[in-house]
Design a protein around this nucleic acid. Structure first.
Length: 259
DNA sequence: ATGACGGTGTGGCACCGA
């Protein structure tokens, strides 16, 4: 089973690239973030025509919005974090019934936080606390769990092109990384780090200053798997190719294969 | 210190992202 995550930064703009990518990478499920469109504008027909007959959508106008596109049936779809009231559409979860068994798939567009000390940063901290408490419960009822998405957090110095210059700035705060560690403490594992990876592997590059060409990026898009799945992860890779497209998203897909 | 790029929604720009 292959699962991918991709922050597309507007599904309206990126739909042709998503369809191209799925044609070349026919994953079982693709989790999208930053749809930037309301449910009624979700391109359901085009995705069904591509073989993704099971879509769970939690859209929002202008900002946020997440979806799970799947070839296999989805059930028990939930939106946002149980127990954490949120105006913004940031989380969608579903259970996938696959040949390899049932998996709970949680897709999150984590809060950016803008600047340490800001109200948005406080919201990020509260959101992360709510997420952890909710996931702790989810893991009890569905031990086979995969958490994917745009975390907006680098976990360690390997995940940033400038660990010294960016120390204790947004996406690099100790407080953010403690929340990431809190997710690992639930028994989740960073699937990407289960394998030897190229140095300077990133999933996001700023649009400005030729950041992609210079590989000045961050690894902030992650796939975490629960303890029972850890030994079943066959591969986890970042696909940089879509960043070379015309009008690319600033993020690229991350793909995990679970046997 | 600032802005750089790109998307959205509005309206001749502001706001947001990371």
């Amino acid at each position: 089973m292959k699962i991918a995550t991709w922050n597309v930064n507007s599904l309206s703009v990126r739909l042709p690239q998503v369809l191209d990518w799925l044609a070349a990478n026919p994953v079982d499920a693709l989790c999208l973030q930053e749809l930037k469109l309301p449910d009624e504008k979700f391109p359901l027909q085009a995705l069904q025509d591509a073989g993704y007959n099971h879509c769970a959508v939690f859209g929002q106008k202008t900002y946020n919005g997440v979806a799970i596109l799947s070839r296999v049936p989805l059930r028990d779809v939930t939106k946002n974090i149980n127990g954490f009231a949120d105006e913004q559409s940031r989380v969608i979860a579903a259970t996938l019934d696959t040949a390899e068994g049932a998996f709970r798939l949680v897709n999150g567009y984590f809060v950016n936080g803008q600047e340490p000390g800001s109200e948005k940063f406080a919201y990020k901290m509260q959101w992360l606390t709510g997420l952890r408490h909710w996931l702790k419960q989810e893991l009890v009822s569905t031990p086979n769990l995969v958490l994917v998405g745009d975390f907006n957090i680098t976990f360690d110095d390997r995940d940033t092109h400038d660990p010294e210059g960016l120390r204790e700035t947004i996406h690099h705060m100790t407080a953010e990384r403690e929340h990431f560690q809190g997710l690992l403490d639930l028994g989740l594992t960073d699937a990407f780090r289960l394998f030897d990876q190229p140095d300077k592997s990133y999933s996001w590059w700023d649009y400005r200053e030729f950041a992609f060409r210079r590989n000045r990026g961050l690894r902030i898009d992650h796939i975490l798997v629960s303890e029972p799945l850890k030994s079943r992860v066959r591969s986890c890779v970042i696909d940089k190719l879509p960043r070379k497209n015309e009008r690319p998203s600033d993020h690229v897909p991350v793909v995990v294969e679970i046997g």
